[in-house]
Simulated scan of single mutants.
Amino acid sequence: MNFRRLFFALAILLGSLVVTSTPAEAACAPLSLCSCTVSTTGISFGSYIPVDATNNESSGTVRVQCVLLVALAGSYTIDLSTGSSGTYAQRTLRNGASILTYNIYVDAARSQILGNGSGGSSRITRNFTALLGVDQTTTVYGRIPAGQNVPAGSYSDTIIVTVTY
């Protein structure tokens, strides 16, 4: 099996900022005659209110597009980095020395932390069959737990998304 990795940053922002990402591109091996691109929509949590009793939740997407010149069936995995926290257990949004904890999940119930399969995290694997192309979008889910007493400001984190196919 031929493995390629695509890396790009998925910005996680708190506030009213618009999230954009730069597509990454890699070519498949010459025998498979394909090329793939990956793009994201970041997770924008909007305003966080420290005295609010409900979690702040949002979602983003990872889109994988491949142009194939021969019939192909296969799969790819989506892995996320830990971001600035260095751990999957509790990712952190930062504003200078101030920290706001959050995490990213595989599922809408927010029960499986999305990572690379280590440290209690899960990875996403998608299967596909295609003759000429693949275009799949996967939703990822974010949550900032309620009750964190943090100063006002713009908090952010950068997550590296790795797609292996």
Score class of each variant (00 low, 15 high):
127 N>W: 07
96 G>W: 07
132 L>V: 12
89 A>V: 01
80 L>A: 12
41 T>I: 08
109 A>K: 10
65 Q>P: 00
22 T>K: 14
84 S>Y: 03
121 S>W: 10
89 A>G: 09
26 A>R: 09
135 D>C: 04
36 C>N: 03
50 P>M: 12
127 N>D: 10
73 A>H: 06
95 N>P: 02
44 S>A: 11
42 G>V: 08
114 L>C: 01
19 V>K: 00
103 N>D: 05
90 Q>R: 15
90 Q>A: 10
37 T>K: 15
49 I>N: 13
30 P>R: 07
61 T>M: 10
72 L>F: 03
83 G>C: 08
26 A>C: 07
130 A>D: 04
21 S>R: 07
123 R>V: 01
54 T>M: 12
60 G>D: 03
54 T>Q: 15
85 S>D: 04
88 Y>L: 09
80 L>V: 03
71 A>L: 12
119 G>M: 13
134 V>F: 06
52 D>T: 10
90 Q>Y: 02
131 L>G: 08
126 R>F: 01
122 S>D: 04
18 V>N: 07
59 S>E: 03
128 F>E: 06
29 A>V: 04
40 T>N: 14
63 R>Q: 12
96 G>I: 10
67 V>W: 09
19 V>I: 08
32 S>R: 11
82 T>L: 03
42 G>I: 06
52 D>M: 11
103 N>A: 05
86 G>S: 00
98 S>R: 10
22 T>C: 01
37 T>H: 06
109 A>M: 14
19 V>N: 02
104 I>R: 09
42 G>C: 01
42 G>L: 08
118 S>L: 14
58 S>G: 00
21 S>G: 15
20 T>F: 05
15 G>W: 02
99 I>M: 08
88 Y>A: 00
64 V>C: 04
36 C>A: 15
57 E>V: 13
36 C>L: 06
53 A>K: 14
73 A>Q: 15
100 L>H: 07
18 V>H: 14
81 S>E: 05
36 C>M: 05
58 S>P: 02
99 I>S: 06
26 A>S: 08
74 G>P: 02
74 G>D: 01
63 R>G: 02
68 L>Q: 06
84 S>K: 13
20 T>P: 04
74 G>Q: 11
55 N>G: 03
119 G>W: 15
34 C>Q: 03
127 N>Y: 13
107 D>P: 02
14 L>M: 10
109 A>T: 08
16 S>G: 09
66 C>E: 10
65 Q>Y: 04
81 S>M: 03
28 C>M: 12
25 E>V: 10
29 A>S: 12
90 Q>L: 13
113 I>P: 03
44 S>H: 04
72 L>K: 11
85 S>P: 03
74 G>R: 09
61 T>S: 09
44 S>I: 04
117 G>H: 05
79 D>Q: 14
92 T>A: 11
77 T>A: 11
71 A>Y: 02
80 L>R: 08
100 L>G: 02
15 G>T: 10
110 R>S: 03
39 S>Q: 00
45 F>N: 08
17 L>Y: 00
16 S>K: 14
24 A>M: 00
